[in-house]
Structure formats: C-alpha cells, structure tokens
Amino acid sequence: MGTRISFKRPDGKDAEGYLAKASKANSPGVVVIQEWWGLQDQIRGVCDRLALSGYEALAPDLYSGTVIPYHDAEAANREMQSLNFIDATDQTVRGAVQYLARTGAKVGITGFCMGGAVTVIAAARVPGLTAAAAFYGLPPAEVAGPKDIRIPLQGQFANKDDYVTPDAVNAFEAGLKAAGKPYEFFRYDADHAFFNEQRDVHERKSAELAWGRLLAFLKSHLG
C-alpha cells in the first residue's frame, strides 16, 4: 500500500522511510517508530492501517536498511545499542515530522518497544508534534523524564513485561501526575510486544483493544 521515500533531516542529510498515504489530501500525519528489529513488515503494516484510518503515516528507517530476524535478539540488541537515540530523534524523527507537516496538518507519533522509548524522547524534544503514543517503551530518566514531556502522552504497557517493568511504568506515571502532564496509561495482562502479530507473544484481544485506544487518542488530538 505504501512506498519507500527519502526525506530531509533538519541538518540537511537524507533519511529514508516507509510512507503510507491516506485517501484524503492534507490528512493528519503520524510518525511510526520501529521496534529494535528494524523497519519490519509489521511496522509497515501499522502504517498501512493508519492510512486506512485516515492518517498519512511515515515510518523512518532508523537502521538505514538493516532488518533483524525475529529470532536474533542478540543482533537486534547490538543494532539498538549502536543507535544514537538523540540524533535519531532530533534529526531523523524531526525530519519525518517536518515532512508530514508540510501541508499544515497536525502530526502525532507512535512507536513500539525501542520505538516507544523514542516516542517518549520525541514528546520531550521534537517541535511540531501534537501528541505521542508509546507502546511498551520508556527511555532512561536522564534522557527524557516525566517532567520533560511537552505534549499529551498515551502509554500502552504489558503487565508481564521484563523489559519495561510494571514498576518502571508506575514510577513514570507517578512522575507525570506529579508534574501535571496530560497523559493516559493503559495496562494489559500480556507480554512485551503483545501488539506485534508476527510474534508468538501476540495477544489478539489486548492488541485490538490497544488499537482502538490509539485511534481514539489520535482522533482526539489530531482530528
């Protein structure tokens, strides 16, 4: 449904990503951030689903073409550890936001796992964003803490998550509440990455509920 495109980062360098267009011109935009596996088919599928729901969706390729097989967590971790998260957010993600905002449309962001952490960082650092929705991902507090969030934030988390633990989610939520930030958090009795239908941890009921909540959040803030 979509196509691979090039777009400019604020520093003038080229970046690439997967763009799925909505049927209506000047539709709101959503930047979609990959898991640590790279720009997998599943992430492109999220873009396609968002396009069918009325959003122009762009997934920037943060690994520059590298895609990791789902079974190779060691390689995925190695690729993630080599990523400069601040450069990826301030330059590649911001470039994607600017690309989607070129028509004057509102732009939001969502991301999964590693992409969830990038989404939270973007909510603190990237101008031009209207709302952010993170799936089971949080950054280190020194990179972006609750008090740094500048836009409405939705969080969708798994209660059986060994990566982004319930305690970490509770602490971040408490920080958001204390700082008076606009947010909504949801928790599911599922495993990390429950939304990814290509993984054996996929939990359909939770994923469908999370998708509906994402669309409601985007509709509320982007239109």
Rank of each mutant, 00 (worst) to 15 (best):
Y163F: 15
A134N: 05
A158Y: 01
G175N: 06
R150N: 02
A179W: 12
P140S: 15
Q156G: 02
A179V: 09
A168S: 02
Q156K: 07
L138N: 01
D162P: 13
D167S: 15
D189T: 14
D161I: 05
P140G: 14
L138P: 04
P140Y: 14
Y183R: 00
V164N: 13
Q156T: 08
P152V: 06
L176C: 09
L153I: 08
R150V: 05
G137I: 02
K177G: 11
K181G: 03
Y183W: 08
Q154H: 14
L176E: 09
L138C: 03
A178L: 04
T165Y: 12
L176Q: 11
Q154L: 13
Y136F: 11
I151F: 00
D167E: 12
F172C: 01
F186Q: 07
K147C: 02
G155F: 09
P182L: 10
D148I: 00
F172V: 01
P182S: 14
A174C: 07
A158T: 03
I149D: 00
F172S: 03
D162E: 15
D189N: 15
K181P: 08
N170T: 12
E173Y: 01
E173M: 07
N159Y: 03
R187N: 15
F135C: 02
N170A: 14
V169M: 07
Y183Q: 01
A178S: 12
N170G: 09
D167I: 13
R187Y: 12
L138Y: 03
D189C: 15
I149K: 11
D167H: 13
Q154M: 12
A133F: 14
Q156M: 14
T165P: 14
F172H: 02
D162L: 14
K177F: 14
A133S: 13
P139R: 00
A134P: 06
R187C: 13
R150L: 09
G137S: 09
L153E: 07
F186S: 09
F185I: 10
A174P: 13
N170Y: 04
Q156I: 13
I149E: 09
F186W: 05
Y136C: 03
N159H: 02
F185V: 05
P139C: 03
Y163N: 13
